[in-house]
Write a protein that binds this DNA or RNA. Structure first.
Lengths: 231, 231
DNA sequence: CGCTGTATTGACAACGTTCAACGGTTGTGG
DNA sequence: CCACAACCGTTGAACGTTGTCAATACAGCG
């Protein structure tokens, strides 16, 4: 039940805090293991906990009234997630699903007010986190408003490289299982179009595909594609 | 220079505060008049102040690297805006431009920490505000990912009715000058398409157009259009 | 009165979705 | 252990929504 301080000290959220404060926070946290494919919480469910990802990878999705799904974001180790209550919501606005074996720290939402009370840093950090997320959302809106699909996919893949890139001999591997459908739901297009684009890129030697796999061979090349003003 | 308490007490931000606290806040605020077409701050400018809109209407825009513009949001009376510094930014991420004669309260950003220190309510309110804005952004992403242009425009117009609707004999007036270009930049399309859609709606008696004018005659009809699942 | 910014409308092209069929891989249950 | 289902991916063809290009009209303003 007890999580060791050394496991979390490297995350941005904690590295400005004293050992004592970290210990207090950890003492109230429950670690939770989530198998790939399992959900941490469901869209519409009562927001009774908030979380931090220790290990693994999650995707947060939303389903529209007419059944279409989009991926809101990918959760990486060190990220806070599911703190809907802090935003004055009673329910979770999306579903968090593990795409690979993951471990999350869980706190009951009732503790949130105490936490920010005891540790003003946390409130500031939370504000920054949400601020960044808002900027990401606006960036995505900007892209969807002004760019054609191929550039959006390029940007999305580059973002994944940043967040989950792992160096390999032949290039940079996206370090979790990701399907064309997933990329489609991140960019607002269909898996067909994504498949075509990735095939074209593979022919150019920019990437290497595979079942739920993606290896980026030529980052500068992709960046050029992403930044290229409309011809 | 002094702003009377009664002018602001009706806004959500202040109505949970004591008269004394309100007075303290107001004592440090500078009211600023902005003519239609003038900017309050520029994208990229140093974020040395944050604001609350007392009267009028602003639009917040962003320009992309290749010169395309989008409208991030519309600022209504009572809204906080431009608190970039609280999100750990040094510059404003967008430009705030008055679309009609407006009055804003200005505070130097250095005061922000003191404010949330003295008035914990404010930090909570700020979190809620940003949380809502994040949800709006996600809603917009969802719409742009899954809906065709006409429905997006319908949603956008309905949102404007909520925010800036003014009852008239023939329907609900959008209470500030708004062009087809503006609507296009809010929905991620072109003014041509917006013009076509509005013309079609006018033929059906749903709206009445005009130069920088918009009157919604049939709200339920528009709502039906907006919610209609894809045929 | 002419200029500038806004709006309308048509013709056309194209990007991307939809529909459809097929191949390959993984995992499961008999 | 093999057969089969379920899922993921690929690719072709047709269609349609929407952007692009272009021409015109109109209102407001100096």
């Amino acid at each position: 039940m007890k999580v060791d301080r050394s496991l979390v000290k490297s995350f941005a959220l904690f590295n400005k805090m004293t050992d004592l404060d970290v210990d207090v926070l950890l003492a109230q946290a429950a670690p939770r293991r989530v198998a790939a494919g399992d959900v941490v919480f469901d869209q519409g469910g009562i927001a009774d906990h908030f979380f931090m990802l220790l290990h693994g990878r999650l995707k947060v999705t939303q389903v529209t009234a007419d059944g279409q799904q989009i991926i809101v974001r990918v959760v990486n180790p060190g990220d806070l997630f599911g703190f809907a209550k802090a935003l004055q919501r009673v329910d979770y606005p999306g579903t968090a699903l593990a795409v690979s074996e993951s471990i999350a720290l869980c706190w009951p939402t009732e503790l949130w007010p105490q936490f920010i009370d005891k540790n003003p840093h946390l409130a500031v950090t939370a504000l920054h986190t949400i601020g960044q997320r808002l900027e990401e959302a606006h960036a995505r809106i900007r892209e969807m408003s002004t760019q054609e699909v191929e550039r959006r996919v390029a940007h999305t893949v580059l973002r994944l490289v940043e967040q989950a890139g792992k160096k390999e001999a032949a290039g940079i591997r996206i370090d979790f299982p990701i399907s064309r459908q997933d990329i489609a739901e991140m960019t607002g297009t269909t898996l067909h179009t994504v498949s075509r684009i990735l095939s074209a890129w593979e022919a150019k030697g920019l990437v290497e595909g595979g079942r739920q796999k993606l290896l980026v061979c030529n980052v500068p090349g992709l960046t050029a594609l992403a930044d290229e003003a409309k011809k």
